[in-house]
Design a protein around this nucleic acid. Structure first.
Length: 496
RNA sequence: GGCCCCAUCGUCUAGCGGUUAGGACGCUGGCCUCUCACGCCGGAAACAGGGGUUCGAGUCCCCUUGGGGUCACCA
């Protein structure tokens, strides 16, 4: 796209019908990034015109989710607006609301005003057809293998305003409608594919089509970023802008995000809501980075894929967005999360582990954990792995994968002897540091005629229980002499 | 089915008429090494097919195929 000619203002406009899945969040990220890149504004608007589908608490969830990702909002529902629909909560942000309300159910009068304007303009009309009539019409059309849609029966009936009615848009019968999409260029539709759609429902609330056009205009939105599912109805929005004499925004229909099986992202794919990602131990900055990368790349020959937030703001433009839908690859996310985990300053790593530790029933970030933390940080990909890696330091009795120590010519009696000799070597150590432990145990390998690896595996299983652990000597040091020796002798007993 | 969108390794992508088609994840061989992880070195792996345009097409055009979206008083 060429240069931005007007101030950039983008919006995220979710409907509060439950959790946002990660594909929807990506749309929010792109809109936010675009606004920040051009030094514009990012607004949040709640599209709750379907009163039946709204779920209590969903707005709070969206707000907290955006906050978790560090997506800050310039304009959005004020505290008062939240209160007006019963969705206020302690610590709710009181967003600046210069073109408010930013909650559609609070803008009813405005939509009715615009609907009336459209009727006066002759491009919309009242319709009182019943659901039954509509259904019968639809069935007949399908029987005749026609495209289903409203026939336009009420177009000329002049239904009085005091009768229950909807307001429909008078779709031109046979006309090409061309609209500009920022990513695809000119897209041409036949008007026949859209048949007199409803703009205002009989309950007086608008349908999406009326509400978006009206709000995006009223709120000064310059760029509409939304999923491709909106592309087929975009001509209607375009026509509405024309009828009203409003300048349309730049439309940008984003490809969808699919699950790893190529199907639309859903619960079946495991985590799809940011809430679940958080609980599973993903870092918001890693998730943000990864999600932005599904469908966007810096281009210009750049290979960069790890970005700080500032990098992203600096480099994000519409040109980098890809046209084809992308699969969400959990493998790559996990890899990237590991990368971010490793980059965390140690103190930060420790504090982020805290809640995962306590949730697993461990004491939390105590001295023991602080000691082992540097050794597990580089082995962790997602934070939920942490408790398992350190639990050997907290349990009184550990389970031991005995089979793993009995290998490469080491049978039970030999292992037992190794433990006994090793215990002797450690017993006299005045300084139970990892380097001293190393120095005491390493020479024993030669004595037993084995490589250090297999010998240390015996000690590893004995003291830590598992085949895969943090480094042995450091772990022993943190475990402490008494407990280390006790675990050695316990194992000797176990081996008969 | 109608309409619309899309098409480079399994996945995310670089490429914007002339390249040994590059990178990343994953997979895999090796090194490092007390296990694992990290790190480093190497490998297998792609232009969906067919027509054009051009001296020359992954790059431009058309068709086919494949995938996706959408056809509500939901968004």
């Amino acid at each position: 796209m060429s240069e931005m000619t007007k101030p950039v203002k983008t919006r995220f406009a979710p409907s509060p019908t439950g959790f946002q899945h990660i594909g929807g969040m990506r749309t929010a990220f792109y809109a936010w990034l675009l606004a920040r890149h051009y030094g514009g504004k990012f607004i949040l608007r709640i599209e709750d015109t379907d009163q039946e589908r709204k779920v209590p608490g969903a707005i709070r969830f969206i707000l907290e989710e955006l906050k978790w990702f560090g997506v800050d909002i310039d304009e959005g529902p004020s505290r008062e607006e939240l209160r007006a629909i019963g969705e206020d909560y302690p610590d709710a942000p009181n967003l600046s609301s210069p073109h408010g309300p930013y909650i559609q159910s609070l803008r009813k009068a405005r939509y009715q005003e615009v609907a009336n304007q459209l009727i006066k303009l002759g491009v919309a009309y009242r319709c009182d057809c019943t659901h039954e009539m509509l259904e019968r019409e639809r069935l007949e059309q399908m029987a005749r293998r026609e495209v289903p849609g409203y026939s336009g029966y009420c177009r000329t009936r002049d239904v009085p305003a005091d009768k229950p009615h909807v307001v429909r848009f008078k779709m031109p019968y046979k006309q090409e409608i061309a609209l500009q999409d920022a990513l695809r260029g000119k897209v041409v539709f036949e008007s026949a594919s859209l048949k007199d759609p409803v703009l205002l429902k009989s309950d007086g609330l608008p349908l999406y089509h009326l509400a978006v056009v009206c709000d995006d205009h009223d709120m000064g939105v310059s760029h509409v970023l939304r999923g491709t599912e909106w592309l087929p109805t975009a001509p209607l929005h375009w026509l509405l802008y024309q009828a009203l004499g409003w300048e349309p925004p730049v439309f940008c229909h984003l490809p969808v995000v699919l699950g790893s099986d190529g199907k639309k992202l859903s619960k079946r794919h495991g985590a799809t809501s940011s809430d679940i990602f958080r609980k599973e131990g993903y870092l918001p900055e890693a998730l943000f980075n990864y999600v932005v990368l599904v469908g966007w790349a810096p281009g210009q020959g750049s290979n960069q894929e790890v970005f700080t937030r500032e990098d992203l703001i600096k480099q994000f433009t519409l040109e980098g967005i890809n046209l084809s839908s992308g699969l969400f690859d959990y493998n790559k996310l996990i890899w990237m999360n590991g990368l971010y985990v490793r980059q965390l300053p140690i103190e930060e790593f420790i504090s982020r582990c805290e809640s995962f530790l306590t949730q697993a029933g461990l004491p939390g970030a105590d001295a023991t954990f602080r000691a082992i933390a540097p050794h597990i940080q580089e082995r962790v990909k997602i934070l939920t792995e942490v408790p398992d890696m350190v639990s050997f330091l907290y349990k009184e009795a550990i389970d031991r994968e005995i089979d793993s120590m009995l290998q490469k010519g080491i049978d039970a009696s030999k292992a037992k002897e190794m433990l006994s000799v090793g215990r002797g070597a450690l017993q006299n150590l005045p300084d139970f540091s990892h380097s001293a432990i190393d120095a005491a145990l390493r020479p024993l390998a030669e004595k037993f005629g084995v490589k250090p690896g297999p010998l240390f595996m015996v000690y590893r299983i004995a003291a830590l229980g598992k085949k895969i652990t943090p480094p042995l000597f450091e772990s022993l040091e943190i475990l402490g002499k008494d407990r280390a020796l006790k675990r050695f002798s316990e194992t000797e007993q176990l081996l008969g």
